[in-house]
Nucleic acid binder design. Structure first.
Length: 483
DNA sequence: AAAAAAG
């Protein structure tokens, strides 16, 4: 068990760490920080939510020369939200030493960023595309770079950023230290490391500390058409403080938000087709708990660290096990237990088994909640509301009426009536969601008949006639013959 | 097949 005081950190950074309330280092921090402080390149294999930002942030900030007002370190991240979050965290860590970090990402007015750059931040947290833009405009110069961090490198690879990253690294001419963090180590990442890193030391954190240990994982089998109603029942029963709901597509997210609002929940959606302004605003509102449900595509699956997320709902089961781990990792943070519920249609059950195998954790089946469960849940929520009001006090104005009422009616009858009016009836406002096609899980490649894929229209026409997209199984079995 | 990211 390591504490931050064991690291060779300057007193300023020790102060910064204790200001943030950190004492014990997480495993990745314990392993990566001492090595990174010596100036060596580090490859850290760790999931999100393991305290990576601090792991690379402290060594990076330690090296910054505060009297030099040029950019001395960059962090590259796969999504805009992540870049913003990393910048916030680095700003907190660097505050005592007076080191500032600027987030640089697409979708925000570039002129605004250029103005902000005039304030001379020493560190930058960026998405690759916009950083390249700045480099070509010469609004960002990378001739004093001491440290480069590649955060979520495998995700940046998946999103096709590797070329951009190489361009960025090629344009740095100073001598710098590289810290690379990645949950997995595919070949392409190793190649990148070989090409750009200098005898890196690899540190691994066992998959066990993969953050899912303190998350209560369950699933409910539902038919597609029931999903929305079942989901609303869940919300009523569990009354989450702060919940993230994941949908499979952007359209789906929009429809879910609309449906939830129709039923009186306070929800907002976030996905890549919204303006960056809107995205920033939704994240902010959610963090301030001005909305308690955030509906998202996988844009919010990785890395986002929002304190107090009590529940994660997979309205649609995620494509791959890795995405599952990332999504549910948004809850159960900072030592608290989180709750993750996944809605699964019958034909997705196999896929759920695959996820279980990969995460090596049983996902417990729960029955579809009954009306009674919902009524009970609503009653409980009402009682909680009353308790909260009592805690807050400030109901002097009602006491006289209460006393008058109690003269004629006994307290149990009176309170029962109050509970009755306050308790929300299950809402049945019809909400129609566009069905998402059933998840097409990748299977082992089968002998394709040697034809390969043809793109000419004649062939397309034929395929269309032969294999209706969602035809029933018997039919397609009968027709599987030309192998 | 979907999502993300430069405009």
């Amino acid at each position: 068990m390591s504490t931050f005081s064991q690291f060779q950190l300057s007193s300023e950074l020790q102060q910064a760490v204790s200001n943030m309330g950190f004492e014990e280092a997480t495993p990745i921090q314990a392993k990566a920080i001492p090595i990174a402080l010596t100036g060596k390149d580090v490859i850290g294999q760790a999931q999100t939510g393991t305290g990576k930002t601090t792991a690379f942030g402290l060594p990076m900030i330690e090296k910054v020369d505060r009297h030099d007002r040029s950019i001395q370190g960059i962090v590259l991240a796969p999504t805009r939200e992540l870049a913003i979050q990393v910048a916030e965290e680095l700003n907190r860590l660097g505050q005592v030493k007076g080191i500032r970090t600027l987030p640089i990402y697409g979708g925000q007015e570039i002129s605004r960023q250029i103005r902000a750059l005039k304030n001379k931040p020493q560190l930058i947290a960026a998405t690759p595309g916009r950083l390249l833009d700045h480099i070509s405009r010469r609004t960002i110069r990378l001739n004093q770079i001491q440290t480069v961090v590649l955060d979520e490198a495998d995700e940046m690879l998946n999103m096709g950023f590797i070329e951009d990253i190489e361009k960025i690294l090629d344009s740095i001419h100073s001598e710098y230290q590289t810290l690379l963090f990645s949950a997995t180590m595919p070949e392409r990442i190793r190649t990148l490391a070989n090409k750009f890193m200098n005898d890196p030391e690899i540190v691994r954190v066992k998959a066990k500390t993969m953050t899912v240990s303190n998350i209560d994982q369950t699933y409910i089998e539902v038919r597609e058409k029931q999903k929305f109603d079942v989901f609303c029942s869940l919300l009523d029963i569990q009354s989450p403080e702060l919940a993230i709901v994941f949908g499979r597509t952007k359209k789906r997210v929009d429809e879910l938000v609309e449906g939830l609002i129709k039923r009186g929940y306070s929800a907002e959606g976030i996905h890549g087709d919204l303006t960056q302004k809107k995205r920033d605003q939704v994240i902010r509102m959610f963090k301030q708990q001005r909305i308690d449900i955030m509906v998202a595509t996988d844009v919010a699956a990785r890395g986002l660290d929002i304190s107090g997320v009590s529940h994660v709902y997979n309205f649609d089961i995620p494509q791959d096990p890795e995405s599952y781990v990332h999504r549910i990792g948004r809850t159960g943070r900072a030592g608290k237990t989180g709750i993750a519920v996944t809605l699964v249609t019958p034909r997705e059950l196999d896929h759920l088994k695959t996820i279980e195998q990969v995460t090596r954790k049983t996902i417990v089946r729960k029955p579809i909640p009954t009306i009674e469960d919902v009524v009970f849940g609503n009653k409980k929520a009402t009682i909680q509301q009353i308790m909260n009001t009592i805690d807050e006090g400030d109901f002097q104005a009602y006491k006289k009426s209460a006393e008058n009422l109690l003269e004629d009616i006994d307290s149990v009858t009176l309170l029962s009536a109050c509970l009755k009016i306050m308790t929300k009836e299950p809402d049945h406002t019809p909400v129609v969601l566009t069905e998402v096609p059933p998840l097409h899980v990748k299977k082992k490649k089968r002998f394709s008949g040697g034809q390969g894929r043809r793109k000419d229209s004649r062939n397309n026409q034929k395929r269309y006639d032969d294999k209706p997209k969602y035809g029933n199984r018997k039919r397609s079995n009968r027709r599987r013959k030309n192998g």
